[in-house]
């Protein structure tokens, strides 16, 4: 028993180390994904036919294939065509591209929920198309997207767990190490599950607070067609 306890204490820093990498993966994936997602959503709604097709292809390909397969293609497959990325870079890139495709769909939904009339109103006072998107459509769409978007950080956090299959030193990799040392995989993975649960719970609270903070009276998703 004391052996076990001793080991438990010694594993905590290892876990924390892995947790930090997990959070890093989540944060980078989320930010890269937001940039890509916003660009793809705008391209899909307002772009020329070709831009639109490219955006749709990106979104459908990354939503239509497993994250793990994308990760392997980028980490193991890309060197075959002369692009070699480190484990971390591969994980960042895959998570960003994958999350971007999902975020694009949330954002597109929100942009389309801001009625066409808003664009017309913007144009009617002399704002250009671009200025109308920037000052009229986006400020509303970015608020409207929050309820659906707020799932993404949690989904992404959970998705990062597959990165251990290319040996990124995240929570799961550390768990695998500890499980091999303790011969207690069930206990170890249960401990990891608890860590994930706690982070997911915290993220949930943060998102709820964000939703409350940014609420505007009368601005909710509703289908008021022009």
């Amino acid at each position: 028993m004391s052996d076990w306890l001793d080991f438990f204490w010694r594993s905590i820093p290892v876990f924390l180390n892995g947790l930090w990498v997990t959070l890093e993966l989540t944060a980078v994936g989320l930010i890269v994904g937001f940039g890509l997602g916003l660009a793809a959503a705008l391209g899909r709604v307002y772009g020329s036919p070709w831009v639109r097709r490219i955006c749709i292809a990106y979104i459908e390909i990354f939503r239509g294939t497993p994250l793990l397969v994308q990760l392997f293609l980028i980490y193991y497959g890309f060197p075959g065509i002369g692009i070699t990325l480190s484990r971390m870079m591969s994980a960042y890139l895959t998570l960003g591209l994958n999350s971007g495709a999902y975020q694009a769909e949330y954002l597109r939904g929100a942009i389309m929920a801001v009625s066409e009339g808003q664009m017309m109103a913007g144009r009617s006072i002399g704002l250009s198309r671009l200025a109308s998107i920037r000052y009229v459509i986006l400020p509303q769409a970015l608020r409207l997207v929050i309820p659906s978007w707020s799932n993404e950080p949690i989904l992404l956090l959970k998705s990062t767990a597959v990165a251990f299959l290319i040996a990124v030193p995240d929570l799961m990799t550390k768990a695998k190490l500890i499980a091999a040392r303790t011969y207690d995989p069930i206990g170890t993975y249960l401990a990891v599950a608890v860590v994930y649960l706690v982070i997911v719970g915290l993220l949930n609270e943060v998102m709820k607070a964000l939703e409350r903070r940014l609420r505007i009276p009368g601005l909710e998703i509703e289908s008021h067609k022009p």
């Binding site: 801001v114 009339g117 808003q118 017309m120 109103a121 009617s124 509303q140 608020r143 505007i216 601005l219």
Partner: peptide, 10 residues
């Protein structure tokens, strides 16, 4: 406009 079309976020 008939349906006002105020900017809802402002």
């Amino acid at each position: 406009f008939q349906n006002f079309l105020l900017f809802n976020h402002l």
